[in-house]
């Protein structure tokens, strides 16, 4: 479904990704593992079109999307749930969710999507008429995930969904991610909580200094001595 080959990307003159290639097939859950600054977020931003790669190609359903902007990749069904929630602070939760369904592919089924998504997030339903900036961090993360699902995504990308949350909230976030995965969604997830993410994923890529140094099935990566030492502290 998604195919990156030989991607070089970064900010301005600074190149962060060096020759990154990866694939995600339909229905698969893939994770990118790496330290801070390894280029995980840069990879997601490049896929979504917020950053333009300086070399390499990105294909989605076989179609070259390398040069598309973010509003065009969103229309294709690529949805990114950004790090740090990034809600619309002065809008109600309901309005935030409706913004998720802004793309043409989701608009028509907006109210049906709302019902489906709220069934997954009973806590969010209680807060529908509240301003987003009045919610706690954990609630905001749930709204951010719910908003992402409102786009009826074909590929759902998570950027650090557990960052900055209390441990009890982190496990709730992972419960939600697990339930999304169970629906057969195609997911690309970047997360510092390597152990939990590899448990949920089918395959993983290890990114170091902007390069893919290792890729394998998630189970195998959990047993890999390098991964265990560097990312799991075992």
């Amino acid at each position: 479904m998604l195919e990156l080959s030989g991607i070089h990307s970064g900010y301005g003159q600074t190149t962060i990704l060096q020759d990154v290639s990866l694939t995600v097939t339909e229905g698969e859950v893939v994770t990118i593992v790496g330290a801070n600054g390894a280029g995980k977020t840069t990879t997601l931003r490049t896929i979504s079109g917020l950053l333009k790669p300086s070399a390499g190609t990105i294909r989605f359903d076989g179609k070259d999307i390398t040069k598309l902007s973010s509003h065009e990749t969103v229309e294709l069904g690529i949805t990114m749930i950004p790090e740090g929630r990034q809600l619309f602070p002065d809008m109600t939760v309901r309005e935030n969710l409706l913004m998720g369904a802004y793309r043409k592919g989701a608009q028509a089924s907006q109210s049906q999507l709302m019902d489906e998504v709220l069934a997954l997030f009973p806590r969010v339903e209680e807060r529908l008429e509240q301003k987003a900036n009045s919610l706690s961090g954990g609630e905001q993360q749930m709204v951010a995930i719910a908003r992402g699902l409102m786009a009826k995504p074909r590929l759902l990308m998570f950027d650090e969904p557990s960052l900055g949350l209390a441990p009890i909230i982190v496990s709730q976030v992972f419960d939600v991610i697990d339930s999304i995965v169970k629906t057969g969604a195609t997911v690309l997830i970047v997360e510092q909580n390597v152990f939990h993410t590899l448990k949920a994923a089918d395959r993983g890529y290890v990114l170091e200094n902007g390069e893919v140094v290792l890729t394998d099935d998630a189970d195998a990566l959990l047993e890999n001595p390098h991964v265990r030492k560097a990312y799991l502290g075992i």
């Binding site: 990114m80 990034q86 913004m99």
Partner: peptide
């Protein structure tokens, strides 16, 4: 309106608006 909501979204969080598929 939907367009009005899109405009407010850009004003409140430009980066997130881009991720919603809005051509900022």
């Amino acid at each position: 309106t939907r367009s009005g909501r899109g405009i407010r979204a850009v004003a409140q969080n430009r980066a997130a608006a881009q991720l919603m598929g809005i051509n900022v």
